[in-house]
Design a protein around this nucleic acid. Structure first.
Lengths: 339, 339
DNA sequence: CTGTTAGCGCATTCAG
DNA sequence: CTGAATGCGCTAACAG
C-alpha cells in the first residue's frame, strides 16, 4: 500500500517523506543516516539536503524497535544532594555517552511508587545501574536482574548480581590508625553501620585498627548521615553524654556539622577533639581546620558501572567479581596534623 | 502469518507469548496492562499470572512507536559540580516523574560532538529543556526548537523560545544596596557579566543599586566563575592591583575562594573587606563568617521547566512569557552584619 | 551502488 | 467483554 508521504515538514517528517523528496528509497536514506554502507556522493547529498529542508528528526523508538536495542542505560540513585551522587552521575554519563548510550535517570527519594517507576525504567533501557545503599530494596534488584543486566554500585557484594565499589575497609583502618597514631585513645565511630555496606565496611576498618593497636573499639554512635543528625549528636556530646578525644564520622556532612557545632560551643578542634570524615566534599577544603577525610574515585566508579553495563548488554566479558576501586587518605588539620 | 511465540522466558517474552500463555489475544493483554478498558476479572488474573511467570517486560520502544510519544523529556546541562545543577535536576526529575515522563540527561561539558549528542537526544524524547548559560550555543537551541518543544532555563529571554528563570536584577539591587548601607563605598563586582544572562542581570542590579545611592559603579572584574579564578583574583587584590572594601561576587564559589584566600593572608572579613555571593551553597553556612548570599528556588525552577515541557507536548497552554521565580536574600556575617 | 520487502512489539480501531 | 487486523517508522537482508 502506497504510504501517504505528504511533504510533512518539521515534526511529522519521516524517512518516507525524506526518501520521496530526495527521489530515493527509504533504504538509501537509512544508509546515509546510519553512515555504515557506501552511498554515491551524489545521492548522499540529495538525501542530506532533503533531511535539512524537511527538518527531519528520526524517531528513536522506531529505530530501537528495529534494532532491538534501546541504546540507553538506566541509572537509579536515591537523590543528588552533596557531591557524591553528582560525581557518580557525571562519571556514568560521560562514559555512557562515549559508548553511544543515552542515560535515563531515576531518583528514588520521596518516590510514591518506587517499584512501578523502576519497572517503567526497565521498559526503556537495555541495562540498569543501581546505587546499592539506599536506592532500592535488594529484593527488587534481584527480580530486576532476572530480566535486564544490572550492576549494583557500592552495594552488598555477592547477591549474584554484578557489583562495583570503592575500597572502604583498608582506608578506614588506615585513617583510624592515623588518628590513634596521634595519641588519641577514645575515638568514636559516628554514623550507623547499618546505613549501607559502605558505612558498614568503614566501621569494620575502624574495628580492625583498634585491634591492630590492642585497643577495644567503642560502640558506634548509630545515627543517620545528615547534617541535622550531626548537630543533634554534637549537642549530646557537649552535654557530656559521650566522651571522646576523636570522632571518626561516616561521611563529611556529619563531620562538618559536628565540627562546626563543637567549635561554636568553644571546643578546640583538633585540640580537644579530633574530627575526620569521608568523601572529601568541597567544604572539607574550606573549613578551618581543614577536614581530614578519605577521597573516593567517585567519577571512576560511575564510569566503571557504565562500562560494565555496556559489556553485559554486548554479551562480552562474563560476570566478573566485584571490582573495587582504591581510595586515598587526605590529611589536613582536623585530625591533629600540622600541615 | 502465525508468529513464532515460543515460550520465551525473561528477556525475550513479548506480548504475544503472554497472550499465548494466558490463552487470550494480545489486545486483551494490552488492555489489562494499560488498565484503561474494562476486562473480566477472571481473564485479567490469567494475564497477570502469565506476565509474572514469563517475567514479561514490555518493550518501551514498541509502545512509543505505537502511541507516537516517547513519554520522556530531555534535560541538557553543562555539568553537575556544585549544588545548582544538581538541585535543578532534582526538581526537574521529580516533576517529570509525577507527570509520567522519563528523563534522559545530557551533560555537555567536555563533550566532543555536542551538536550530534543533542540531535541524538532529540531522537528519543518529546521535548527538551536546556540550561541557557553554558550548555549549548543559542543557534543550536533555535534550530532545535523548530523541531521539538524546547524551554530554556535561566537563559536569554525572548529568543522566541519558551524560557523560565530566577529573578536576578532586583535581588542584586537589594543585596548591593544592603552592602552600601553598611557604609561601604568601594564595592567591586567580581565575575564576568558575559558569562551568561544570569550574571549579566546581577551586574545590572549592581549598577542600579549604585545609581540609587548616587554612586558611580566600578568596572566589573571580568573573570570566570570558578574557584581557581577566585584564588587568582585574590592574589591580585592582595598585591594591590585592586582597591575595594566590599566584593560582590557573581556566585558563591567565587566568593568563598576569595574570602578564604583573603583570610589566609591575614585580611579581616568583613572588617577590611566584605564579601557576598550568590546561590547559597552548603559551604556558605559553614565558613566563618557565614557568607551573605542570595538563595534561588532552584528546584522549583527545574520543576517549572518540566511542567512547561509537558504542557508544550500536550499542546495545552499557548507559549507564555518567561516565567520568573523570586529569590531571597540570605544575610549572614560576611557582609558586615552581626547576626 | 540502490530498491523491495518483511518484520521489530505494541496500541488500537472495528467487529462480534 | 474479547479477537482479528492494521499501522506506527525504521533497519536489514535480499535481489538486482
Amino acid at each position: 500500500m502506497a504510504r501517504k508521504t505528504a511533504g510533512a515538514t518539521g515534526p511529522g517528517a519521516t524517512i518516507y517523506s525524506v526518501a520521496d523528496r530526495a527521489g530515493v528509497s527509504i533504504a538509501t536514506v537509512s544508509r546515509v543516516l546510519q553512515g555504515g554502507t557506501v552511498v554515491a556522493e551524489r545521492t548522499r547529498e540529495k538525501v542530506l539536503a532533503a533531511v535539512e529542508e524537511l527538518g527531519y528528526v528520526p524517531l528513536g523508538a522506531a529505530r530501537s524497535l528495529a534494532v532491538r536495542h534501546h541504546e540507553a542505560h538506566g541509572l537509579v540513585l536515591p537523590e543528588l544532594s552533596g557531591p557524591y551522587y553528582s560525581e557518580l552521575l557525571m562519571g556514568f554519563e560521560a562514559r555512557a555517552a562515549e559508548l553511544g548510550q543515552s542515560v535515563v535517570l531515576v531518583l528514588t527519594n520521596g518516590r510514591r511508587d518506587l517499584v512501578g517507576d523502576v519497572r517503567r525504567l526497565a521498559t526503556r533501557v537495555d541495562a540498569i545501574a543501581v546505587l546499592g545503599s539506599a536506592a532500592i530494596p535488594g529484593e527488587v534488584v534481584r527480580t530486576l536482574a532476572e530480566k535486564k543486566p544490572v550492576v549494583v554500585i557500592a552495594g552488598q557484594p555477592g547477591d549474584g548480581v554484578e557489583a562495583v565499589a570503592a575500597e572502604n575497609v583498608d582506608s578506614a583502618r588506615e585513617l583510624v590508625g592515623h588518628v590513634l597514631g596521634h595519641g588519641r585513645r577514645r575515638v568514636l565511630f559516628v554514623g550507623d553501620p547499618a546505613s549501607g555496606p559502605d558505612i558498614n565496611n568503614r566501621h569494620a576498618g575502624y574495628r580492625q585498627a583498634h585491634h591492630d593497636h590492642g585497643l577495644a573499639p567503642a560502640e558506634p554512635v548509630r545515627i543517620s548521615l545528615r547534617e541535622d543528625d550531626g548537630f543533634a549528636f554534637a549537642r549530646r556530646l557537649l552535654a557530656g553524654e559521650y566522651h571522646a578525644d576523636a570522632l571518626v564520622c561516616a561521611n563529611d556532612e556529619l563531620a562538618l556539622s559536628i565540627m562546626t557545632a563543637l567549635q561554636d560551643a568553644g571546643r578546640d578542634v583538633p585540640g580537644d577533639t579530633a574530627v575526620v570524615g569521608w568523601d572529601d566534599v568541597m567544604t572539607a577544603r574550606y573549613v578551618r581546620p581543614g577536614l581530614t577525610t578519605v577521597r573516593q574515585p567517585v567519577q571512576e566508579l560511575g564510569a566503571l558501572a557504565a562500562d560494565r553495563l555496556h559489556d553485559l548488554v554486548g554479551g562480552d566479558r562474563p560476570p566478573t567479581d566485584t571490582r573495587v576501586l582504591p581510595t586515598r587518605l587526605v590529611l589536613r588539620a582536623s585530625c591533629g596534623c600540622t600541615p
